[in-house]
């Protein structure tokens, strides 16, 4: 039975459904139990499934991730919540040195079916170090899958798929979209593929690639440009950052000849560069304009008085798209 849920409710619904479905699923993190998570993504789950399955851990991110590695080694399917992406820094050694490498370094003897969930991104007027977008770190780490949902339906379906995958998944949840709107979300278990982008709008003049909280920004910009200039755009929600959905990306650019990549992470070294390189390597003959990136600036994510200026907005996306479309 479908329900109208926002993203954080959809995530809770996914966790609930899998906890009920698979006794090996375990949730661990800071404040995930009694408190139901600081964003309430695990609300009510400890009460329903008990302290052994929804575990309030000590305040130790490396401990959460490292012990999840052990749990996964020994038959469990842990879902670790890191309260904010930047709080993962103490646990990054576990992510890079072990989570990503376990299957490879044990030559397949051990696999790590685990999910690391974390709210990420700016736009909620959070304190310092509550607003980072560091997805490229994980994409640059072989062995990790990296996904970012942009709506409640995808969030539930992708999280369920992530919990069923035998590889570790970095599940990045755009904080700004947690309560950005409700959408009809089916009850029970369903899966959204973890390697497919979604073409949200089809057009001919330009391809706009975005993920997470930038998806609605890209959509608004595309709509505005359609009204103002008559241009039509493919708006593609990449959703899966590792692996990238090459087919969808190239098919779109081959059609439109122009690509604009929007992400809120810093520009330099950001994933937009990878998407651009992919297009340049495989579809350069189609390009009618330079590939444009509309991104956050190369500064530490600033305090929230100016975070709106840091984040790409509709106007900045429009500038990037206009540059691409009018390039001649």
């Amino acid at each position: 039975m479908a329900e109208e849920l926002n993203m954080v409710q959809a995530i809770a619904a996914a966790l609930d459904a899998k906890l009920a479905d698979d006794a090996r699923i375990m949730i661990l993190g800071e404040d995930v139990g009694v408190n139901g998570g600081v964003f309430r993504a695990t609300d009510g789950l400890q009460k329903k499934y008990g302290q052994n399955r929804v575990v309030d851990t000590p305040l130790a991110e490396s401990g959460i991730i490292g012990s999840s590695v052990g749990l996964a080694l020994n038959g469990f399917r842990p879902v670790a919540e890191i309260q904010f992406l930047a709080f993962m820094f103490p646990g990054l050694e576990q992510v890079f040195a072990h989570v990503a490498r376990m299957r490879s370094r044990t030559r397949g003897r051990f696999q790590l079916p685990m999910v690391i969930r974390t709210p990420y991104g700016a736009g909620i007027r959070g304190p310092e170090l509550h607003s980072e977008s560091l997805e490229s770190l994980f994409v640059h780490t072989p062995g990790l899958r990296v996904v970012v949902p942009s709506n409640p339906y995808d969030a539930k379906g992708m999280l369920i798929a992530a919990m069923e995958l035998d590889d570790p998944v970095m599940f990045l949840e755009p904080t700004r979209l947690y309560r950005a709107g409700k959408r009809s979300v089916p009850g029970g278990l369903y899966r959204v593929p973890l390697d497919e982008a979604e073409v949200l709008h089809e057009g001919d003049d330009v391809s706009i690639f975005a993920w997470g909280a930038m998806v609605p920004v890209a959509e608004r910009a595309a709509l505005a440009l359609h009204e103002e200039r008559g241009w039509t755009a493919d708006v593609v929600d990449l959703r899966s950052l590792m692996p990238l959905d090459r087919e969808t990306i190239l098919r779109s650019v081959e059609k439109t000849g122009r690509a604009v990549i929007v992400h809120e992470a810093h520009k330099t070294g950001g994933l937009g560069g990878e998407v651009a390189a992919l297009i340049a390597e495989e579809a350069i003959d189609c390009l009618r304009a330079p590939i444009m990136r509309v991104t956050g600036y190369d500064v530490p994510v600033p305090s929230f008085a100016v975070e709106d200026a840091y984040l790409p907005d509709e106007d900045r996306v429009k500038v990037g798209v206009t540059e691409a479309v009018t390039y001649e």
Binding site: D285, C286, L287, R288, A289
Partner: peptide
């Protein structure tokens, strides 16, 4: 014809 010596400016699509 290329006597100007200037670099040809054209997008990849146009070159293709």
């Amino acid at each position: 014809a290329a006597a100007t010596g200037a670099r040809v400016r054209a997008t990849p699509y146009v070159r293709h």
